[in-house]
C-alpha cells in the first residue's frame, strides 16, 4: 500500500518535471536556456519515473522472491545511470556546437568564452 503510494508519488513528480522540461523547451528564448530545461528537468523526471519502476520491482521482488525482478531493478538502474551521463555530456556537446556555430546567449549579462570560429 505504502509502496503503491510511493510509486504514485514518484510518477507524479516524474511527469511534472518532464512536462516542465518540455514547456521549458517551448518557452525559453535561446538554445542554452532551452538546454537547461531539457537536460535538468527531463533527466530528473525520467529518473523519477524510472524510480517508480524500480520501486515496483523492489516490491515484487520481496513479494515473489523471483530473480527476474532483480533483473528489472538492476537494468532500470543501469538505464538511469546511462541516461544521466549521456544526457549531461550530450547537452555539453550541443552547447559547445551551438557556441562554435556562433550563437551567443540571449540577454547575456556576461560572456567569458571566446572560441575560435569554425
Amino acid at each position: 500500500m505504502i509502496l503503491n503510494l510511493l510509486i504514485g508519488a514518484a510518477i507524479a513528480i516524474g511527469l511534472f518535471f518532464n512536462a516542465l522540461g518540455v514547456f521549458g523547451i517551448l518557452r525559453f528564448p535561446d538554445v542554452y536556456t532551452r538546454l537547461h530545461a531539457d537536460t535538468k528537468a527531463t533527466t530528473f523526471g525520467s529518473i523519477f519515473t524510472s524510480l517508480a519502476v524500480a520501486l515496483y520491482a523492489l516490491g515484487r521482488l520481496f513479494e515473489t522472491a523471483d530473480g527476474q525482478y532483480a533483473t528489472l531493478l538492476l537494468h532500470t538502474l543501469v538505464a538511469v545511470v546511462v541516461l544521466a551521463i549521456t544526457n549531461a555530456t550530450g547537452a555539453h556537446a550541443i552547447a559547445r556546437a551551438a557556441r562554435r556555430r556562433g550563437h551567443s546567449p540571449a540577454q547575456a549579462v556576461v560572456d567569458k568564452l571566446e572560441e575560435p570560429a569554425p
Partner: peptide, 17 residues
C-alpha cells in the same frame, strides 16, 4: 577532436558498449 568531456565519456562508455 571534441572536448575532453566528450572524449572521457566516450572512453567510459566504450567498454560499456
Amino acid at each position: 577532436n571534441m572536448t575532453k568531456i566528450v572524449r572521457t565519456t566516450a572512453d567510459l562508455f566504450y567498454p560499456f558498449c
